[in-house]
C-alpha cells in the first residue's frame, strides 16, 4: 500500500546542512497500522511530512499503491492520503465553524451532499449534531481532535497519517481518542501511519514499528517483540526502559547513540 524506499531529507546548505532523514525505508501493507517512534528530532515527523507532500526537498522514492509519488501531488492524491495533526488547538481555523471546516474539502473536491456527509462523519467520530455550528474555541481539546479526525475522514481516504495525535491531549482523553481511531480503522479498513514518541501508544495501536534515531532507522520490530522485550538493538531497549518512567539507576546507565 505504502512503500518508502531510501528516503533522504536535507535541510539547509553548507555549514548549516542538516541531514534530517537518512536512507529510511519501510513498507506498510493495506489495512496495517505502522508506527514510527523515536525521540524529538529523530526525523519521524519529517518522514510523515514527506509522505503527505508538505515537504518537497526529499529524494528517494515513495510509492502509494505501486505508483511512485512526485514532489507535486495531483488532487486525487488527497483522496487517498489524509493527515491528522498533533495540536488540535492549532489545526482548526479559528474563524470557521466546525461545519465550515468540514464542508471545505467537500467543496474543493466537488463531492456534493455536503450536509449529509458532515452529519455522517460527525456521528462517526462521536460528536452530536449540537457541535456542528460551534467555533473551535467552544470545544475542548479532545473534541477538537475528533473534529480533526472527522476532517481527515470526510474525503474517505485509504491511508491516514497520524502525527502524534494524542500527545497534546490530557491523559484521560488520550485513551478515548486512541480507541476512536482503532474503531474507525476497523470499520473503514484504513491503513495508519502513526508517529509518536510514546511507546505505550505505539504498542497499543501498531502492528509493526520502526524505531528511528537521528534520522536513521534503528530497527523494525513488531508488537510482540515490544511486549516481550526481545529487542536486537540496545537503543530500542533503552527507549523501552525510558518509557517505563523515571528510574534513577536506569538513567545513570543510559548511553548516547
Amino acid at each position: 500500500m505504502l512503500k518508502v524506499d531510501n528516503l533522504n531529507v536535507v535541510f539547509g546548505h553548507g555549514a548549516d546542512k542538516n541531514h534530517a532523514v537518512k536512507e529510511v525505508s519501510f513498507l506498510v501493507n493495506r489495512g496495517e497500522s505502522f508506527g514510527l517512534v523515536g525521540e524529538s528530532g529523530s526525523g519521524k515527523s519529517t518522514v510523515l511530512n514527506c509522505i503527505s507532500g508538505l515537504l518537497s526537498n526529499w529524494y528517494g522514492s515513495i510509492e502509494v499503491d505501486g505508483a511512485p509519488l512526485s514532489h507535486k501531488r495531483p488532487i486525487s492524491f488527497y483522496h487517498k492520503v489524509q493527515m491528522v495533526f498533533q495540536d488540535p488547538y492549532g489545526s482548526l481555523h479559528p474563524r470557521h465553524t466546525i461545519d465550515a471546516t468540514l464542508k471545505e474539502p467537500i467543496a474543493i473536491h466537488k463531492l456534493g451532499d455536503a450536509n449529509q456527509r458532515v452529519e455522517r462523519v460527525l456521528s462517526e467520530v462521536g460528536l452530536g449534531p449540537q457541535f456542528r455550528f460551534r467555533y473551535p474555541h467552544q470545544l475542548s481539546g479532545g473534541q477538537r481532535q475528533r473534529v480533526a479526525v472527522a476532517r481527515a475522514l470526510i474525503l474517505e481516504p485509504e491511508i491516514v497519517l497520524l502525527d502524534e495525535p494524542t500527545s497534546a491531549l490530557d491523559v484521560s482523553i488520550q485513551a478515548e481518542v486512541l480507541n476512536l481511531l482503532q474503531e474507525i480503522r476497523r470499520e473503514r479498513s484504513l491503513t495508519y501511519v502513526l508517529v509518536s514518541h510514546d511507546l505505550a501508544v505505539v504498542s497499543h495501536m501498531c502492528d509493526t514499528i520502526s524505531v528511528m534515531n537521528q534520522g536513521e532507522t534503528v530497527e523494525i520490530i513488531n508488537r510482540e517483540q515490544l511486549q516481550t522485550g526481545e529487542l536486537k538493538e540496545s537503543y530500542t531497549r533503552q527507549l523501552l526502559v525510558a518509557s517505563r518512567g523515571y528510574d534513577r539507576q536506569a538513567i545513570d546507565q543510559f548511553q548516547d547513540f
Binding site: L54, D87, S91, H93, E104, I108, R151
Partner: peptide, 16 residues
Amino acid sequence: SDFIRAIRLQGAGPLR
C-alpha cells in the same frame, strides 16, 4: 500554521 497545512493537504489551491 497547522490549519493552513491541513487545508493544503485537502487539495486547496493558493487562490482558495
